[in-house]
Amino acid sequence: MNFLIEALAALGRTAINMFSGVGRLMLFTLQALRAAVVPPYYFGRLAEQMALIGWFSLPVVGLTALFTGAALAQQIYVGGGRFNAESTVPAIVVFGMIRELGPVLVGLMVAGRVASSMAAELGTMRVTEQIDALATLRADPFRWLIAPRLVASVVMLPLLVMVANAIGIMGGWLLSVNKLGFNSGAYLATTRKFIEHDDFIMALMKAAVFGFFIALLGCYHGYRASGGAAGVGNATTHAVVSSFIMILLSNLIITLMVFG
């Protein structure tokens, strides 16, 4: 009996914690959005974050897309071969990259790079009282730290996805032409035919949503860090794991909404 009550109490506590956690995140989100929309803005900070998130993610995003596009072409060629459908390679590379792989891969790679560094930087600022110092010096931490990261991430992710899509499709083309014996001109013509405006828009929309979650969760966990270096480590882990989950979940939801 006692055991049962204790178990129920533990369950209740977990539920309450979860709800209050969701509540805190919602409140944080509203504050962050407000700081991002209502002036004053810190344009210098925004430019800095855009460079950090966009420019410095290019190498990793480009490489990921190139390798994945090529591997995708190879797999479709082998898989398609069973149905005598090798000629579908260019079309399916385009669909695969633009609709799913481009946004998701970029989202995950950038989350690994950026959500972690945001959480680590803000977490360190929190535990070394730099965030308190900001507020004392009358700079709103939401405006100075969080809004620039959020806006930069939402703007840069779609750009990165565009780049990744182009490079991924190019990877497929390179492999198909050089290894699988496709005719370059014909391959490119088919590719062009299957790039659809709506798919492209959806990819960019996905990217913007992923960018939002990456910055939001990176900042949220960093901002709330406590307990020294270990606390910062925890915040970083939580930021990466939660942004991965949110990226994959929102990707599924958007895909189902558009193609369901």
Binding site: T128, Q130, A133
Partner: peptide, 12 residues
């Protein structure tokens, strides 16, 4: 207010 924080809290 002007505050000197215990650890300095300069912005890195």
């Amino acid at each position: 207010f002007g505050m000197l924080f215990q650890g300095g809290a300069l912005f890195d």
